[in-house]
Amino acid sequence: MEMISKVANGFIGLFQAGGETFMGWVTGIIPMVICLMVFVNSIIGIIGTERVERFCQKITKYTILRYTLLPVLADIFLTNPARYTFGRFVKEEHKAAFYDASVSFCHPITGLFPHANAGELFVYTGIATGIQKLGLSVGGLAVRYFIVGVIVILIRGILCEKIFAALSK
C-alpha cells in the first residue's frame, strides 16, 4: 500500500513541477505580451499595410536595404507567414535571398516585437526566462538579439544571392 502511494506521489509530482512552470509563464509572460501585441497591432491597423507596401516597393533596388529594412518591415507589419508575400517586390534572382533574410529574422524580432511571430516565442522567451531567473535584465539581450539578427540576415541575403547566381548559371 505504501509502495502504491509513493508511486502515485511521484507521478503527481511530475505534473506539479510542470504546473508551477506553466503558472509562472502565464502570469509572467502573457500579460505583457498581450498588451504589447494589442498596441503594435493597433498601430499597424492605423498605418495600414498598403502604405508599407508602397514604401517597400521603392527600397528593393538597394542591396543593403533589401536584406535589412525590407525583411524587418515585412516581419513587423505582415507577421509570420504573410511576410513572405513581400518577395513579390524583389527580382526573381533575389527571391531566395529575400526569403532567407526574412525567415532568419523571425526569431530575433520576437524579443522586441512578439506579435510578429507569436506562435514561436519560446526560442527567445525560453532562454530569456532563464536569464531573468538569475535576476538579470533581459532588455539588453532583446536589443542585441535584434541588432545581431539584422547583421546576420544581411550576410545571409548577400551570400544566398551569390550562391543562387552560381547555381543557376
Partner: peptide, 14 residues
C-alpha cells in the same frame, strides 16, 4: 525543436 531546446537551455541558464 528550437523552442523546446531554448526552454531547456533557459532552465540551465537559470
Amino acid at each position: 525543436i528550437a523552442q523546446v531546446v531554448g526552454t531547456l537551455l533557459g532552465a540551465e541558464f537559470a
